[in-house]
Amino acid sequence: MLKLSHVSVRFGQRQAVDDVSFTIENGEILALLGPSGSGKSTLLRVIAGLTPSEGQVVLAGRDITTVPTHRRGVGLMFQDHALFPHLDVGGNVAFGLSGAGKQERVDELLELVGLAGAAKRKINTLSGGEQQRVALARALAPEPKLLMLDEPLGQLDRQLRDRLVIELRELFKRLGTTVLAVTHDHDEAFALADRAAIMSRGKLLQSGTADQLKAAPVDEFVADFLGATASVRRWPQ
């Protein structure tokens, strides 16, 4: 579905993304995992066409490297959601829709994310979890070929995250959505995704399933990153 070849991004002196290549199969969920500043979010922006890069991006067999953002057919859920404050919930979800049947589609999507009947609510009356759901419905609405999530559960509390991550996975599998999710939390990555790709300092170090990565980490960084966070979690509350 998505194929990246030798993608690099340089910000002045800093190599934010360094020669990254990978593929995502149709209907697959891939998590981009890595510490903050490792270039994950930049990579999402490259795929969305918001940040210029070197290399090639192919989506559904079409080279989209030079296609402007609004004609790419990818969806992106921003880290702080970036909901439009001047539109209500329904207006946000309907933004990417066109033609007849908008209203039905909005209702359908709001029901899908568990916010049925919230179309008329204002954005500033929503809780963090609700905003996250609206952002998801808005990103799903135009039926993007690839849905990208930037720290989708970032600001929510632990309990809510544990529940939502399962819900999200079920939802994406049911809809057959191809997903690329960025996260710094490997528990979240493995709960959500089929496969994870680990990034550090702009480089893609290794990708695979949870078992593959834990069984045969390619270097010390990957081992430390997966191991260290795991051991921290084992401390009693």
Binding site: H70, R71, V74, L76, A82, F95, G96
Partner: peptide
Amino acid sequence: DERLREAARVLGAS
């Protein structure tokens, strides 16, 4: 917020 403009572009707005 520049991201609002970006969000609109990702959703297909010219």
